[in-house]
Computed example of a mutant assay.
Amino acid sequence: MRILWDYDGTLFNTYPAYAKRMSRVLNGKVSEEACYTELKVSASHAISTFNMTPSQIEEYNRLISSISPEEMPPFEHLEEILKQAECNVIMTHKDLNGALHVLDHYDFTKYFSEIVTADHGFPRKPDPAAYEYLHYKYQIDLAIGDRELDIIPAKRLGMHTCLFQNKSELADFRLQNYKDFDRVVLL
């Protein structure tokens, strides 16, 4: 199977650390749980929802860029899927250095044929341009993400989709944990 992966919230459990920093920037006036909920829609959505000022956004970005890989662990049973896949690629809005810092820490970089990041200049999701590039280069079978935003481009291209820890009916498949991958995703 050839899989296109989202990064944050799909490969690595990053949102708790992001929510903690956003709540801190908002001086604790917004709970970590509320930040987490809005960040799961998108970072720009959370920033807009909480009316963050430019200086707060700058501080938030500074704080999240210094999060240690230990605070962003891979999801349980993920490595088993990465090892079994014929090809894995990533499409993320994260910058390449930030993505590689965590991937290298967990020795996961070796599992990916290509990592497309914000540095590559593609439009942001849900624009399908980056997905189209990866799909035609690698003949992707499945796109996995944790938000609808991650699978909308794949749906536009006719790819099978899987949402991780998200109950939206938009996806072809839904997983709560990677232990059930082979049972749920039957391509």
Rank of each mutant, 00 (worst) to 15 (best):
residue 2 R to V: 08
residue 3 I to D: 03
residue 5 W to P: 03
residue 6 D to W: 01
residue 7 Y to I: 02
residue 8 D to S: 04
residue 8 D to K: 01
residue 11 L to E: 06
residue 13 N to H: 07
residue 15 Y to G: 01
residue 15 Y to H: 06
residue 15 Y to C: 02
residue 16 P to V: 03
residue 17 A to N: 00
residue 20 K to T: 05
residue 20 K to V: 07
residue 22 M to H: 02
residue 22 M to Q: 01
residue 23 S to Y: 01
residue 23 S to M: 07
residue 26 L to K: 08
residue 27 N to I: 04
residue 27 N to Q: 12
residue 29 K to N: 13
residue 31 S to H: 06
residue 35 C to H: 12
residue 37 T to Q: 15
residue 38 E to T: 07
residue 39 L to G: 09
residue 39 L to M: 11
residue 40 K to L: 14
residue 41 V to F: 08
residue 43 A to M: 14
residue 43 A to L: 13
residue 45 H to E: 13
residue 46 A to L: 05
residue 49 T to D: 03
residue 49 T to R: 13
residue 50 F to I: 01
residue 51 N to H: 13
residue 51 N to L: 05
residue 52 M to V: 05
residue 56 Q to I: 04
residue 57 I to E: 09
residue 58 E to T: 12
residue 59 E to M: 09
residue 60 Y to A: 11
residue 62 R to I: 07
residue 62 R to E: 14
residue 64 I to D: 01
residue 65 S to H: 12
residue 65 S to Q: 12
residue 67 I to P: 03
residue 68 S to Y: 04
residue 68 S to V: 10
residue 68 S to T: 09
residue 68 S to P: 06
residue 70 E to Q: 13
residue 72 M to N: 04
residue 73 P to V: 00
residue 73 P to W: 00
residue 73 P to H: 03
residue 76 E to C: 10
residue 77 H to Y: 14
residue 77 H to G: 01
residue 77 H to F: 12
residue 77 H to D: 03
residue 78 L to T: 04
residue 80 E to K: 15
residue 80 E to Q: 14
residue 80 E to G: 09
residue 80 E to M: 11
residue 82 L to H: 09
residue 82 L to Q: 08
residue 83 K to C: 06
residue 85 A to G: 10
residue 85 A to Q: 09
residue 86 E to L: 02
residue 86 E to N: 11
residue 89 V to K: 00
residue 89 V to P: 10
residue 91 M to W: 14
residue 91 M to G: 14
residue 93 H to I: 11
residue 94 K to S: 12
residue 94 K to I: 07
residue 95 D to K: 14
residue 95 D to T: 13
residue 96 L to K: 15
residue 96 L to P: 09
residue 97 N to E: 14
residue 98 G to C: 01
residue 99 A to Q: 02
residue 99 A to T: 09
residue 100 L to C: 07
residue 103 L to P: 02
residue 107 D to K: 01
residue 107 D to I: 05
residue 108 F to P: 00
residue 109 T to D: 10
residue 109 T to L: 10
residue 110 K to E: 15
residue 111 Y to S: 10
residue 114 E to G: 11
residue 114 E to L: 11
residue 117 T to W: 02
residue 120 H to C: 10
residue 121 G to Q: 09
residue 121 G to E: 10
residue 122 F to A: 07
residue 124 R to M: 14
residue 125 K to G: 00
residue 128 P to R: 11
residue 128 P to K: 12
residue 129 A to Y: 02
residue 130 A to H: 00
residue 130 A to T: 00
residue 131 Y to I: 06
residue 131 Y to C: 12
residue 133 Y to H: 10
residue 134 L to S: 03
residue 134 L to R: 00
residue 136 Y to F: 11
residue 136 Y to C: 10
residue 139 Q to C: 15
residue 140 I to S: 07
residue 140 I to G: 06
residue 142 L to W: 04
residue 142 L to C: 08
residue 143 A to Y: 04
residue 144 I to F: 07
residue 147 R to G: 04
residue 147 R to T: 10
residue 147 R to V: 01
residue 150 D to F: 05
residue 151 I to K: 06
residue 152 I to E: 10
residue 152 I to V: 11
residue 152 I to P: 05
residue 155 K to G: 04
residue 160 H to S: 15
residue 160 H to E: 12
residue 162 C to V: 08
residue 162 C to H: 02
residue 165 Q to K: 15
residue 166 N to A: 06
residue 167 K to G: 08
residue 167 K to N: 13
residue 168 S to F: 10
residue 169 E to R: 15
residue 170 L to W: 08
residue 171 A to H: 03
residue 174 R to N: 15
residue 177 N to Q: 13
residue 179 K to N: 07
residue 181 F to G: 00
residue 182 D to R: 15
residue 183 R to H: 15
residue 185 V to F: 07
residue 186 L to C: 13
